[in-house]
């Protein structure tokens, strides 16, 4: 599957739950939102191999 993280595309293999994808990419669930087809996904949701998701970082600094 393709995972867009802040505009950068990352490839993740296989069918996985959102929580597993975040873990694989080293992302903290408290610091992101995961979006598929314009909808928010919870960490327990499955993402199929042929699907695309977007990870939006939510932490602002300064």
């Amino acid at each position: 599957m393709q995972v867009k993280v802040n505009g950068e595309i990352k490839e993740v293999k296989g069918r996985k739950r959102v929580g597993e994808i975040l873990e694989e990419l080293g992302l903290n669930r408290e610091e992101v939102l995961v979006i598929k087809n314009g909808e928010l996904l919870t960490e327990s949701e499955w993402v199929e191999e042929n699907e695309e998701i977007e990870v939006m970082r939510v932490v602002s600094g300064g």
């Binding site: 992101v32 939102l33 932490v59 600094g61 300064g62």
Partner: peptide
């Protein structure tokens, strides 16, 4: 922040996603 970002997303509030170029110097981050 996650709750606020989710609310903004669901309400379709257009907001800037850019980071301040000096944010990396902020120890709070």
């Amino acid at each position: 922040e996650r709750e606020i970002a989710a609310y903004a997303f669901l309400q379709r509030i257009p907001f800037s996603r850019q980071d301040c170029p000096y944010a990396y110097t902020a120890s709070f981050l």
